[in-house]
Structure formats: C-alpha cells, structure tokens
C-alpha cells in the first residue's frame, strides 16, 4: 500500500547553500493494516518520511507510492485527495485555535463534503468515544494536553482513514496519558487502519512489540518485526 523506493530527500537551509540530506536511499513497504514504528533520534528522518506520505514534501530522488500512486507527481492543490485517506496525530496537537472541540473534529468531515446531520451524529459519537462530552463546546486553550491530544485523535479517526500518521503523539504527555493514547492507536489498528507511529520513547517501542524501522542520520539501519528500541 505504501512503498518507498530508494528515496532521498535533501533540504537547503537558509544558513548554508550546501544541501543537507534528511533521508538517504530509504526503501521499505508497508502493507494494509500494518502497525509500524519509526524509531530514531531527533533529526533522524522520521518526520520527513511522514511528510512525504502526506504530500507535504516531495522526494529529491526515488519514488513514494501510496496505493500505487506516485506522490512525487501529486500537485499541492490536489494533495487533499490523498489527505482524505490519512488521519494525522501530532506532538503539538495542531488544533484550530478558533474552533471548538466539536468544530475541530467536524472540520475533517466537512472537507470531505459530508452531510450536515451526518457530521453532527458522527462527531458526537467520536467525542463520546474519546470521553470529551463535557468539553464539546470548549476551545483548545481551555483543554489540558491529554484532552487536546484526544481531540486530535478524534479528528484523525472521524473520516475512517486508511492510514493514521502519528508524529511523536506522546511527546508532550505524562505516562498515564501516553498509555491511553497508545491503547487508542492499537484499537484503531485492530479496526483495520494502518498506523505509522514515529517516536523516540524507548518504553513505548519496547511495550508495543510491533514492526520497528530504526533510522539514523537519514538512513534505515534496522527493519524488524516485533522490534525493540535500539540506538
């Protein structure tokens, strides 16, 4: 379903004209329904992989295929068609600050032209699922970090995406909230969605016992089923 073929990605920084390699010759395949952990230190290339899957970045060389579609050839204005198949969970939550909990979650459905009454029913169901009924009309700045992350997860789930991209979703959370979020991700995976989790949390990686792609300085150094944290 998702395939990287000898993908390289170079960035030019504003300080130096010399391009810096964020990803070097990365090749791997992720099948439907997989749970894959991208593991590595900061700057290893985890986020670059997620950004290429979500069409935020294009590879400098090589191919990124999503359902056999070459993402390097997708125009920025057509990227929304790919993103309708993806749910995003971010470390800094990325909620829309001037929308309520309900509106933030509903926004993902509105972008897919869903019917108004259907949106209301589905959003209310998901809000109940993540336990935020009492915060339905609250704004993000009125929520705790754990609550904001649950809104972010609800927004990622609402349109039943094929793939969930979780970029360090537990980075800003305490151990209790971290455990809850990981449980939710496992449930999403059991329900059939592919989950790609980027993290450098050793305990999370070791506890999950899922496929682990380990990155170091832009290269994939290990690819193990039921892998462990190794850095």
């Amino acid at each position: 379903m998702i395939e990287f073929e000898k993908v390289c990605k170079n960035y030019c920084t504003s300080q130096s004209k010399e391009p810096k390699a964020a990803l070097k010759d990365a090749s791997f395949k992720i099948k439907d329904g997989d749970f894959v952990i991208l593991c590595g230190r900061s700057g290893a290339g985890k986020t670059t992989i997620l950004k290429m899957i979500s069409c935020e970045e294009k590879p400098t060389s090589g191919k990124v295929l999503f359902d056999k579609k070459d993402l390097g050839k997708v125009k920025k204005s057509d990227a929304y068609l790919i993103r309708h198949k993806i749910g995003f969970i971010f470390q800094d939550f990325k909620l829309l600050p001037y929308k309520t909990v309900f509106e933030n979650i509903a926004y993902a459905l509105e972008t897919c032209d869903h019917d108004e009454s259907k949106i209301k029913d589905e959003v209310d169901q998901v809000i109940e699922l993540v336990g935020l009924e009492k915060k339905r009309n609250s704004f993000p700045n009125e929520l705790s970090g754990g609550e904001q992350q649950r809104v972010s997860i609800a927004r990622a789930l609402i349109h039943r995406p094929e793939v969930i991209l979780a970029d360090e979703p537990t980075g800003n959370l305490d151990p209790y909230n971290t455990r809850d979020i990981i449980k939710i991700l496992l449930k999403i995976n059991e329900a059939g969605s592919t989950v790609i989790l980027s993290t450098h949390d050793k305990e999370v990686v070791n506890a999950l016992k899922k496929r682990v792609l380990t990155l170091q300085d832009g290269s994939i150094v290990r690819d193990e089923e039921e892998g462990v944290y190794f850095l």
Partner: peptide
Amino acid sequence: EEIEIMRLVGAKNSF
C-alpha cells in the same frame, strides 16, 4: 499555521 493545519486535515484550497 492555521492554513497549514487546514490543508493537512484535508481541506482543498477553496475551502
């Protein structure tokens, strides 16, 4: 940042 979030969530340009 808001525009970036909207696009990531799947909004097309006109939306």
